[in-house]
Design a protein around this nucleic acid. Structure first.
Lengths: 147, 147
DNA sequence: ACCGTATTCGCAACGATTGTTGGTTCGCAA
DNA sequence: TTGCGAACCAACAATCGTTGCGAATACGGT
């Protein structure tokens, strides 16, 4: 995620205004390395600016997404998650607790894909699903050391 | 997707009953190689059995998903899609028209993944996003031959 | 400082999905 | 064949995540 200053400049450059609410969100996202939902962001923003509306949070998140400054993830049914990490990475989802982590994948260009059939590929998203260490031990996975 | 007969047997085996409504759904899904939404399945089912309720469609789809006979996809915000193709494959999504296709990927095991960090991976989903041939030519892609 | 216009907020509405309830049907094991 | 219980439908209401609307407000180029 770019700095609040850079985001402010980018907003003004396309005719969007930099309000205190947006500054709060810029700051929160800049220092966020997780994958928060809109609700979670609203909660955090409310701490810094009581009364900020969920509507405004959605509005600004959508702006950031369409500017390409923020990635929107739909990894599970239910609420979308937002990813401030704009570097080239992929995701790891725990089926147990729903936690999401970033992973870095190399060698993707070497995989063989059949069925593209004239399709133009702009982006490739890889999602690994499984169980995080905490959930793995909690569910008594036989391949894991038990407590 | 397994045959309606196999699905019927599988349902009975876990104490679920094989009703005419379910048989219609089994048949529809068996011969479906697309990625229909629940709504689309309900529409098709209504043609074969007028009056079948959307509620029943959801119920049976959920049963099939939890039995592992059907895959539920959440490729975009909005409605879920269901994939009767249970073979090992991945997906291609057109950002233009929303169309979804199956693709087959080999060599995935050779990619290098950093950040797994004790995570147990059960499944890997790859989603290629881009533009289908129809949308590519319609949007005037400079790299495509124009009309 | 001014003014145009974007932004804000609260509330209503939306689409997708699930819960409920009550009455009826019907699969299927014994 | 009979009986139990599951499944069906209808008709809602409710939930969740998200967006549309409209009046009041405030950013920011000049």
């Amino acid at each position: 995620m770019r700095t609040p200053q850079e985001l402010s400049t980018a907003f003004r450059a396309i005719g969007l205004k930099v309000t205190p609410q947006r500054q709060v969100l810029f700051s929160l996202l800049h220092q966020n390395d997780g994958h928060p939902s809109a609700e979670a962001i609203h909660l955090a923003a409310s701490a810094a600016m009581p009364g900020i509306s969920l509507r405004t949070v959605y509005q600004t998140l959508n702006d950031l997404v369409s500017m390409g400054e923020l990635q929107q993830l739909q990894l599970t049914p239910g609420s979308a998650r937002f990813d401030p990490n704009t570097s080239d990475h992929h995701h790891l989802v725990c089926d147990g607790c729903g936690d999401v982590r970033d992973v870095y994948v190399s060698g993707l260009a070497d995989v063989d894909v059949r069925g593209l059939d004239g399709f133009r590929v702009d982006a490739t998203d890889v999602v690994f699903r499984g169980s995080c260490p905490t959930c793995t031990s909690a569910t008594g996975d036989p391949s894991a050391p038990h407590a």
